[in-house]
């Protein structure tokens, strides 16, 4: 009897690290991968208000692509995602380059650019909703300052509402992109820069030919982070426009939520979630693969 207890103890001691890790891993397998499989399965069923397992093939997917709301959502994601990524990237790089010019007060300015990242998107949405309020916000302020013809009704204008989401999202994230670029700039080999300057290259030429090309990894990271945030964006749209006016600012995340939980089209909602997952996986998986491979070479 004692013999087997000893064996058991030895086994536990030997496998303790794996035993300690296994609950987390099991949770991940079940709550991430199991749930993905389950949602994938539901997307192939005729589930409406409650899940059922009546398989109907890819019908939900074809229904999804014929749904006008989904087309609007994808179109909005394309507009929002492109502008968000491009503007955040350019603005972030621009501010980082300016801050890298041995600026007095950098330690004061940097946190100001970055603090919106600490806020909830719901707070950001609330603040911008008030700021851009056509009746009482920016428009009224401009009128009082004498610019009486100034008109800014994007929040309630179906054609323009998606751009207010871009403005608020850029406000929130561009400081973070700035911080990524600033870290990249600080890590650049100064020898090459000095050599270029000795050759008589102007500041603009030095940046264009030497420094910016070296920032390629930062561009890649920024792209991956921003693209993944754009596809997931839900809170900001809910707080700022609520998906409206009408369905003018519908995005995939709001589509998924309303079709699954309020419109009783769970199968279609699950299909839309699968499309979101696959889009993000297409961006994230190659990136993570490359990043973890790099570590192996170190």
């Amino acid at each position: 009897m004692t013999h087997t207890t000893d064996d058991w103890r030895g086994w536990v001691r030997h496998h303790l690290p794996k035993l300690v890790l296994s609950p987390s891993f099991a949770v991940t397998l079940f709550f991430v991968y199991g749930f993905i499989l389950y949602t994938g399965l539901l997307s192939l069923t005729s589930s409406r208000m409650m899940p059922n397992f009546n398989l109907i093939g890819f019908e939900n997917y074809s229904k999804l692509w014929q749904t006008l709301n989904w087309q609007v959502a994808l179109n909005n994601l394309a507009i929002f995602g492109t502008l968000y990524i491009v503007i955040c990237g350019l603005l972030g790089m621009f501010l980082a380059i300016l801050l890298d010019q041995k600026i007095r007060g950098e330690g004061f300015l940097r946190p100001i650019y970055l603090y919106p990242m600490a806020l909830s998107f719901i707070v950001t949405g609330t603040a911008w909703k008030w700021f851009l309020n056509p009746g009482l916000g920016l428009e009224k302020t401009m009128h009082e300052w004498g610019w009486t013809s100034f008109k800014f009704d994007w929040l309630i204008n179906s054609d323009m509402a998606i751009y207010t989401v871009v403005i608020a999202a850029v406000w929130q994230s561009s400081g973070f992109v700035m911080a990524m670029f600033l870290a990249g700039l600080r890590g650049i080999d100064s020898e090459q820069v000095k050599a270029a300057q000795l050759d008589g290259a102007s500041a603009v030429q030095t940046y264009w030919r030497i420094i910016i090309p070296q920032l390629r990894p930062v561009f890649l990271s920024a792209f991956v982070v921003l693209a993944h945030m754009a596809i997931k964006s839900y809170d900001l749209v809910v707080a700022l426009t609520g998906g409206g006016p009408g369905n003018a600012t519908e995005v995939p995340a709001t589509f998924m939520y309303s079709y699954t939980f309020t419109r009783n089209q769970m199968g279609v909602g699950a299909a839309s979630a699968m499309i979101m997952l696959m889009t993000i996986a297409a961006i994230i998986v190659p990136y993570l693969y490359a990043e973890t491979r790099e570590q192996r070479h170190d």
Binding site: P17, K18, L21, S24, F25, T28, L29, F31, V32, Y33, G34, F35, I36, Y38, T39, L42, P51, H228, I231, K232, Y234, P252, A253, M256, Y257, T260, F261, M266, G269, A270, S272, A273, M274, M276, L277, I280, A281, I284, V285, L288, T292
Partner: peptide, 26 residues
């Protein structure tokens, strides 16, 4: 241990999934 990279990779990918994918089962 053998396979630890896979364990980590699987946990890491879990950080980036759109949470819409887990709403229904959760």
């Amino acid at each position: 241990f053998k396979g630890d990279r896979w364990v980590f990779a699987l946990m890491l990918f879990g950080c980036f999934i759109p949470f819409q994918i887990v709403l229904i089962p959760m």
